[in-house]
Simulated assay, not measured.
Amino acid sequence: MKTSKKLMALALAGTMAASSLSMVSVSAEPKKATIGVCFYQDTGKAVDATKAFLESLSDTLNVEFKYGTFTQTDEAANLTKVQELIASGVDGIIGTMDLGTQSILSECEAAGVYYGGYLCDFDTSYTNAYDDVFGNPNFVGTVTDGHNPDDVCVGTQFFDSLIEYNESHADAPLTHVSMAIFPSWAFPAQATAADQFVATVDEYNKTAETPITVDPLDEEVDVLNFAPLDSTYFSKHPDTQAIMSFAAGTSFVYPTMVSAGVDSDIKLFTTGYEGGEESNFGSAGNQTYQQVIVTGVETIVYPLVLLLNKINETEFVDMPEKAERISTEQYIVNSDEDMELFVNSLYTTADVSAAAYTPEDVLNMTAFGNPDATYADLVSAVQCLTY
Rank of each mutant, 00 (worst) to 15 (best):
M8C: 08
L10E: 06
L12Y: 11
A13K: 14
A17N: 03
A18E: 11
A18F: 10
S20G: 00
V24G: 00
K32M: 09
C38L: 15
Y40W: 15
D42E: 15
D42M: 13
G44L: 14
A46E: 14
V47F: 07
A49D: 02
K51V: 06
A52C: 08
F53A: 01
L54M: 08
E55P: 00
S58M: 07
T60A: 09
L61I: 01
T69D: 02
T73W: 12
A76M: 06
A77G: 09
N78P: 06
T80D: 14
E84I: 11
A87N: 15
G89D: 06
V90S: 00
D91Y: 04
G92V: 08
I93H: 02
T96H: 14
D98C: 01
L99W: 11
L99A: 10
G100Q: 07
L105C: 01
A111V: 06
A111R: 11
Y114S: 09
Y115A: 03
Y115M: 03
D121K: 04
D123Y: 15
Y126A: 07
Y126N: 11
N128W: 12
N128L: 13
Y130S: 03
F134L: 01
F139Y: 08
T142C: 10
V143C: 05
D145V: 12
N148H: 11
G155M: 07
F159M: 06
D160Y: 02
S161L: 03
S168C: 10
H176F: 14
A180R: 01
A186P: 03
T192Y: 13
D195S: 15
F197T: 04
V201K: 05
E209N: 11
E209G: 06
I212M: 10
V214P: 04
E220Q: 13
V223T: 13
V223R: 09
N225M: 13
S231W: 07
S231C: 07
K236N: 13
D239V: 05
T240C: 11
A247G: 12
G249I: 13
Y254C: 01
V258R: 09
S259C: 04
G261K: 10
G261C: 10
D263P: 02
K267D: 02
K267A: 07
L268V: 10
E277N: 08
E277S: 05
S279L: 15
N280A: 12
G285W: 12
Y289F: 15
V297Y: 06
V297N: 09
I300Y: 06
I300A: 02
Y302D: 00
L308H: 03
E313R: 11
T314C: 08
D318Y: 06
V333A: 03
L346N: 06
Y347W: 08
T348I: 01
Y357C: 02
D361A: 09
D361Q: 09
N364C: 09
F368N: 01
A373W: 02
T374L: 09
Y375S: 01
A376Y: 03
Y387Q: 09
